[in-house]
């Protein structure tokens, strides 16, 4: 596998803020990989992905995207590779209508008009927003805004997708839709590289790998199950205990048998059933 994103020793200070937002952080994301970034509020997650997209003027370190080293000259080539949904969708909208907005990236990429209209329609349908194509993006509900922002990325089909808390205000059905879209994209020929920042641990658990960011550094990385098994790490990085861990503890308090190490939800179900059978 080839590295799609390489961040080396990256440091960034926001103007007039003493503490660095990124502090000599290094990490690699492989081509076609799905990585979830987690960590407490203010740990540097959004700054990190903005830096990868060339939106942050970092002082030290190096970013390479799809083999292109990020410099003021290459920034547009880098951005062409990346489709990003920002944490607040209001910061993202450029079109006067929902359809214009979703079309914006395609138009810039020089896609012919009839093809563009097709792609916009298809993308809006995927997120259940086809009925809103003539509406003003600013006059939508929170979840509708997030759906439109996602449609813009789906239409573009970039080789790197970055979702910065893109599902934080979606209803449960909408969240599931996004997970289904990601699954489908990953099985497609293009199989994009996906970075999703999320505070939803169920969502994070579906990624191939987690990166835990703390104080502008990569505190840990590993398979979701490895990270969730590490209680000390969870506590120190603003993460809560997974449901199965909490259930095991409550069972212990009841004086009942309980697993003594982390199990995923399905493993926990099997474990409980096996224990029940021994009664």
């Amino acid at each position: 596998m080839a590295a799609m994103i390489e961040v080396k020793n990256l440091t960034y200070h926001y103007p007039e803020v003493a503490q660095p937002a990124l502090d000599h952080i290094s990490l690699t994301v492989e081509q076609g990989e799905w990585v979830a970034i987690v960590g407490h509020n203010g740990s540097g997650k959004s700054t990190l992905v903005r830096a990868i997209d060339g939106l942050v003027d970092f002082s030290e370190g190096e970013v390479t995207v799809a083999g292109i080293k990020l410099t003021p000259d290459s920034v547009w080539d880098v951005r062409k590779q990346i489709g990003m949904v920002f944490q607040n969708p209001d910061n993202q909208f450029v079109g006067a209508t929902v359809a214009d907005d979703v079309a914006f990236g395609l138009e810039n990429a020089g896609i012919p008009r009839d093809k563009m209209i097709q792609k916009v329609d298809a993308a809006l349908k995927q997120v259940d927003m086809a009925a809103f194509s003539d509406r003003e993006p600013s006059r939508l509900s929170g979840g509708q805004k997030q759906r439109v922002a996602l449609a813009g990325i789906i239409a573009m089909n970039p080789s790197i997708i970055v979702l910065d808390e893109a599902t934080s205000m979606l209803d449960p059905h909408g969240r599931q839709t996004v997970m289904d879209v990601i699954t489908k994209l990953r099985q497609s020929e293009k199989a994009p590289t996906i970075i999703s920042i999320t505070h939803d641990l169920d969502e994070a658990a579906r990624a191939q790998r987690l990166i835990v960011v703390n104080d502008g550094q990569q505190l840990a990385t590993g398979k979701p199950a490895e990270i969730f098994a590490n209680e000390a790490l969870l506590a120190s990085s603003g993460l809560a205990q997974p449901f199965s861990t909490r259930l095991a503890r409550s069972l212990a308090q009841q004086g009942s048998v309980h697993p003594d190490h982390y199990l995923s939800d399905t493993e926990m179900e099997d474990w409980l059933w096996q224990s029940h059978l021994t009664m």
Partner: peptide, 25 residues
Amino acid sequence: GFSFNQLPLTEQQLADQLADQLPAM
């Protein structure tokens, strides 16, 4: 095959009803 008298909504309610269907420690 587990059974619940009342649909558990919280982790505590689930643990309470499960404990009755599991061996003691």
